[in-house]
Design a protein around this nucleic acid. Structure first.
Lengths: 232, 232
DNA sequence: CGATGGTTTGAGATATATCAAACCTCGTGG
DNA sequence: CCACGAGGTTTGATATATCTCAAACCATCG
């Protein structure tokens, strides 16, 4: 019995493309790894040596300028794929925001395996295309939206992506109330703003009755319609 | 003899993955199409009915908000692939910036063909991964760079992507001097700025001796080093 | 408790947006 | 051939959103 048999993302990750035999072979070249919040799995500009599937937790993908400005260019959740297969360098760092569990492969091993399993490559292609769509939508936010619109859009997307698939009851609740896996500074780095502007927008949205903030990391969406209007 | 035999991007587009027989089959389901500047091949939010390869010309991918703000989320050049295979809707419009020639396929036909040709899907995957990398790098520009840095970065990227591959002599020249396929407004839509700010930055870079502007659409890079420093 | 790190709030500075006018460039028609 | 008009571009003056710097605030943990 391989680790994959009990894997919670077995049917949602790209592994879903494989049958039992193939899965066993893939399992043989991968290994599990836990990450603490703040711990990095890869670094910007480094050789692309690893790829991985996210089993549990939330991680950020980020780049920065020479002089220390940072931009978060992606956020990944359970069942998402990370790393740069078929490429020599990783364009962004990957860092855990929460405790995280990932299933890691050496890129060379994974590349070779993928090339022999078109169904796996197909899943990976679908995922990459979807990620590209999402990333392009985010460009509209970065380039054209105001601070208020940015934060509202962000909170709506968060509430949707944090729902655990499968659990019907839970998802209703998460859509309304959830724990942000981001600090204020990290929210700022996602939205291309400063921490102060983010903070002010949080308090404004709360003052306007669209959200509530029971604690620093928790958000309750009181008026989804209103928030969507605010998101532009 | 099929149209592909004389195709100038034959060896650079994803078609390079196919042998003569396969190429013939692909050719059978595609057709050539010319586009005038300003003409659109697909529209944001529309059903994804077409995919295509760019044979010649430059096209923009763009999205917008309800109230008319626009953001260019990608620019494609000869040999690039456009459209959303394996998906139901296209998240952005595709519009020619110059006269353009494309090789169009019905998405359904293309999807079916691709699924039967793993080598083609592999090429498409590589291209999509590279495009995702580029798009994420662009997010840093949109979220964290100043107007001056944005324009400098843009001009450098332009000069590199406009070179015709193959032609050694020409590429040296293009790296220095090229015709912008964008109006000032379109540059603004790429960079997330207003047309006035873009214009002011152009004149500033010129005043600083980093570039020259022989005409509205032409750019000469006088000091590449300096421009790179300016790009942040 | 007091220290620490993150967050909020405030006051002021600044880059970019906005509004408006002047300016080219180029094609058209008198 | 020149006047005219139209579209795009540049320049100017002003407004404003966001940033910057600074202080107060608040949870958490030893």
């Amino acid at each position: 019995m391989s680790a994959c048999d009990t894997c919670v993302v077995r049917n949602r990750a790209i592994c879903a493309a494989l049958d039992t035999e193939e899965l066993k072979a893939l399992n043989a070249i991968g290994r599990r790894r836990m990450l603490e919040p703040g711990e990095s799995l890869m670094w910007e500009g480094e050789d692309s040596v690893l790829v991985a599937n996210v089993i549990d937790g939330v991680l950020k993908l980020s780049t920065g300028t020479e002089d220390g400005r940072e931009q978060i260019v992606g956020v990944v959740y359970p069942s998402d794929f990370i790393g740069r297969p078929f490429g020599s360098t990783s364009g962004h760092g990957v860092t855990a925001l929460t405790e995280a569990k990932v299933c890691v492969f050496s890129r060379r091993d994974f590349d070779a395996f993928a090339r022999e399993h078109p169904a796996l490559e197909h899943k990976l292609l679908q995922r990459t295309l979807a990620e590209l769509d999402r990333t392009r939508r985010w460009m509209l936010l970065l380039g054209r939206k105001s601070a208020g619109e940015k934060l509202a859009s962000f909170l709506l997307e968060m509430s949707e992506r944090l729902v655990q698939p499968g659990c019907e009851v839970q998802s209703e609740k998460t859509l309304r109330r959830f724990a942000l896996p981001f600090s204020r500074q990290q929210v700022a780095d996602v939205l291309g703003l400063t921490i102060e502007t983010v903070s002010r927008q949080f308090t404004r949205l709360k003052a306007d009755g669209l959200i509530d903030l029971p604690s620093r990391r928790e958000v309750v969406i009181l008026d989804r319609e209103g928030l969507m209007a605010e998101a532009g």
